[in-house]
Design a protein around this nucleic acid. Structure first.
Lengths: 236, 236
DNA sequence: GCTACGACCTCTCCCAACGGGAGGTTCAAG
DNA sequence: CTTGAACCTCCCGTTGGGAGAGGTCGTAGC
């Protein structure tokens, strides 16, 4: 304990010395000391000074308030621990992405960071959770297969678009169908799935440059492809 | 994101709009936006704005700084998680103490809180850890047995003291030996054990009233007993 | 009795990351 | 032209104290 903390407790009315010497020096009585012990113990449990004041001053009125406060604190700590777990997972994922063998690749890391933020802008927390569930359900090799299939679709789409095939051509519309079917594996079922699909399309439309940066094709070509596919989808 | 956060980032120089309209309104360019995405993503990992500014502005100089920062953050999160685990254990222990069947017993809880603080005043963190290890090693029934034995010693000591047996009497000195032997089971071996023993004696001497409150005997009798045993120990 | 030095007092500013509001300007739509 | 929303700057508030200025008190040694 520092003397400054005692002054602070005095200021906020949590604990004041009940006596003063004529010169104004604080005299902490036995009673004050016992209160200080309780304050310190409760602080050591992570409670705020306000909560401590509440439970120490109101404990006489409500003998159960202490238990309530402690159970509430336990819940808070649980939530906090869960949050920390999530953050740890995220950071480990990021470190894995660059750490293995590819050497230090800060660009890739930066791009991933940007995408994280974009992702969080367009999907709600629950939607992101559902998407993560589906992705995990696909498994590692399923994910790889989907990636390869999607790469093929992108190449095919770029060929169609850049050879002048109009967006309402049957070939383009068929490509969109296969594209959406592949994407469907990542979205949940039912109306919620439709909402995440719509959010994903908005994200692509608004940020194809951002997203394209993380892909092997130039951003402008991807942006063009997205617009082309949107046209094809609407024409169907 | 609130606009207020953007103003804040501008104030601290983390992210300012690179253009302004003639009227003074901020215009965030594409480039600014990308920086904002990175800031938000890093914030979502629990990094401080200062750290983010450092890594974003210095990343060109040192491509590994990002990895270093993330691993450091991972370590911090680990420590934090461990701390939360400790706090949870403590709170669960406190709730167990009053929750089982004895009904709401806020007095007992308060006394325990005071003792926690006293305990932390006299023992260092490492010492408390060693003591907890020894206590756990004793096991539940071992602890109960020690408690019963110690209750007997207290009763015997109170009898001796209150029937006027002088502290340098052999019976008192023998009691002290058994008392210290019993306490020895809780202290570590070697010189460190001697230090915790000394700390425990100081704690008893200074706070017998506090500690006595948690025991079935009146605090004054316990205080007297402690003084009596100290005399007997010194006379040996 | 004097003096030195430590301990104490009040008062003020500082930290992180914004939130909220006052009071004034600007923008875009009707 | 008006109106309402959005934007601007400036300032105070939050938590739990830390740091320091500038002054007073108390006690120990000489």
């Amino acid at each position: 304990m520092t003397v400054r903390a005692l002054y602070h407790y005095d200021e906020i009315g949590l604990l004041s010395a009940s006596e003063r010497t004529p010169a104004g020096h604080r005299r902490y009585t036995e009673h004050d000391l016992r209160r200080l012990y309780r304050v310190r113990a409760l602080r050591a449990l992570g409670l705020s000074l306000e909560e401590i004041a509440g439970v120490l001053d109101g404990a006489a009125d409500d003998p159960g308030s202490m238990r309530d406060l402690l159970t509430a604190q336990l819940r808070r700590l649980d939530e906090h621990a869960e949050l920390i777990g999530v953050l740890r997972q995220r950071i480990r994922g990021l470190l894995r992405q660059t750490g293995d063998s590819s050497g230090p690749d800060p660009d890739r890391l930066m791009t991933t960071l940007e995408l994280m933020s974009v992702f969080e802008t367009y999907f709600t927390a629950e939607q992101r959770e559902r998407l993560a569930e589906r992705r995990d359900a696909l498994g590692g090799e399923g994910l790889e297969a989907a990636k390869r299939e999607w790469t093929g679709l992108v190449e095919e789409g770029l060929r169609l678009m850049e050879t002048g095939v109009p967006a309402d051509d049957e070939r383009a519309r068929d490509l969109v169908r296969r594209w959406d079917a592949l994407a469907g594996g990542f979205h949940p079922d039912g109306p919620e799935g439709e909402r995440t699909r719509a959010a994903a399309r908005r994200m692509w439309r608004d940020n194809s440059a951002e997203i394209g940066r993380s892909l092997p094709w130039p951003a402008e070509r991807m942006a063009g492809l997205v617009a082309y596919l949107d046209q094809a989808r609407e024409s169907g």
